[in-house]
Design a protein around this nucleic acid. Structure first.
Lengths: 319, 319
DNA sequence: GGTGCGCGTGAGTATTTGCCCATACGGCGA
DNA sequence: TCGCCGTATGGGCAAATACTCACGCGCACC
């Protein structure tokens, strides 16, 4: 993916400088080109490179009245300790884009604490977006721990791993869950759970001071299905017994009560229990499809913090 | 300046939403127009309004190698507790633009502390830029105090007042210095200093946990001259006795030793004494003209923290 | 009630930007 | 050594954006 680090650094430096001149200095790409002694096209490419590489962060410093209202309503109805509602980006546009900056701010808020905290993390696209939107901060006083593994059934590790990226950005000690998300048999699971390494990570995760999780829907586009953890038949069976959503792979019904499924015995991750104000669990999720799953998790208190977007917030409250 | 608050809010809301769709969502202004049901021009105006009003903040998440080097060199040479060097924006462009975001970050760093702090502030364009670039944060645990008044000799209050704006953004209790910067006679000054209100503010400022100041040059374009605190003759006389710069109106020589001037007896503000690591004084300043003033202030330790830009940093180190 | 002023609006236009393509450069294998 | 391929570069062009101008509306003052 990259050339020599030296080369990369120099090009990123150039990109950063061009983007700085463009966004902070307000120069045109023409002016940047002559300032830095390159062609306009190159200047343009550097700026877009900087944006693509996430070197540039844009933040909105204004609380939209509508979003503030929705936040207040959600806080009141579900007794949330944290709640952020960001403007929607219109249909057919990835809501992760909208909520990632706000989620990153929530994370930064935790990271800014000077005392040492244990921060537990789920997986998923929304959390990945959060980490990408995060500014690098040195916060080595905290410990990061995974609620679940990042190895899929087929052994691939692509399942939107979050903890390693985050640890890299904040330079904090981190404890990934060194196991597959799901194993084939109850016995395998028991063996894994007995490993000291696994037991220590589980213990840390269960004692987390704050937890960030995604929330999965159980409709036909369920992440558990698209990521290959369930077959369509299994999904339909679980839907039939009333599945409404899942957090870290653990499936619950419309009241947010965890279901007693055969699947559970093969899940290796930590189940998030009812959140308390002292040990909040922040849900990071948005999208039409997730409304029911979110309402359920909020109802029972699996999550007591929420970062979502405007249409999703409205949908949750409409129910 | 503004219409009804209601009207303002609604228009800012629109602007913020348009800017969100533009910068975060990546829509074109055409798409924003149809999404929000307005004309393309209106969408464009809303976006530029949001930028002008400071609703949109852009930050660069990359440490340019050259800037990092300069920071390290400045830290080492002057024993600084904080140091930020931002890329220059080229000549003939306001360096405040470049350093304001970094200065705002330094301020946010202090504001994020959970313990209660006393934050003292000077005045000037650079500090004003810092406050404008600051994200609104609730930090009512801190107290903000002014080092000097904001009333000029002619009674006008325009001298880049900082503390009120800052207090508005962070909702912290604030203590402006309720006097002119400079008075006509020593007796007037004595009278003012004896007022309880003034004594309390002075006491608070002198005990500040952290201080943010601009740094003024004493060349022909001295802020003290352009703001009408000195006549050209006075300036030349002070230059003759070796003035190199000024902090909060107090003038020092090339070694950063405060000068014993007749003017001093008419200055009402608090003189910033040698900074300590426990009670840092952060200088916010950049520009060719300020190099000598900065080097002097750094040499004697009037300031032990610095936010500046690349050419200024290089100039300071070159001496 | 008229008149002037200021603000916001939309149309038109100049500038800027993003994208595509032809081309040049450099590494690598035949 | 030659030729191929992948990558980066600059020119050109269409789209997008910013600016200017003239108009219209509302408000206040006369």
């Amino acid at each position: 993916m990259s050339l020599t680090p030296e080369m990369d650094a120099s090009i990123d430096d150039q990109a950063a400088r061009a983007a700085w001149l463009y966004y902070v200095g307000g120069l045109t790409q023409d002016q940047i080109a002559s300032e830095m002694g390159l062609s306009r096209q190159r200047a343009q490419r550097l700026v877009s490179r900087a944006v693509a590489a996430g070197l540039i962060h844009v933040r909105l410093n204004h609380h939209l009245a509508r979003c503030v209202e929705l936040e207040a309503a959600l806080r009141a109805r579900f007794g949330l300790v944290r709640c952020r509602v960001m403007p929607g980006l219109g249909p057919a546009r990835d809501p992760v884009r909208s909520i990632a900056p706000a989620a990153a701010e929530e994370m930064e808020r935790v990271l800014a604490e000077s005392g040492s905290r244990v921060i537990a993390l789920g997986t998923g696209r929304a959390l990945r977006g959060m980490v990408d939107a995060l500014s690098p901060v040195e916060a080595p006083q905290h410990r990061l721990v995974s609620l679940l593994g990042n190895i899929a059934l087929d052994g691939s590790a692509s399942y939107f791993e979050v903890i390693m990226r985050l640890a890299e950005k904040v330079r904090a000690p981190h404890y990934p869950m060194p196991v597959p998300v799901l194993v084939d048999t109850v016995e395998e699971n028991r063996t894994l759970q007995s490993l000291t390494a696994v037991r220590k990570v589980r213990g840390l995760a269960q004692a987390a001071d704050v937890t960030f999780v995604g929330v999965g829907q159980m409709s036909e586009d369920a992440p558990l299905l698209t990521d290959g953890f369930l077959t369509p038949d299994e999904l339909h069976e679980i839907q039939r017994v009333g599945a409404a959503g899942e957090v870290a792979g653990w499936i619950y019904d419309r009241q947010g009560r965890y279901l007693d499924l055969a699947l559970n015995a093969r899940l290796t991750g930590v189940r998030v229990e009812i959140a308390t104000p002292e040990r909040p669990v922040i849900g990071i999720a948005a999208g039409e499809a997730k409304i029911m799953a979110l309402r359920a998790a909020l109802t029972s208190g699996i999550i007591n913090g929420l970062v979502t977007d405007e249409p999703t917030a409205a949908g949750i409250l409409a129910g």
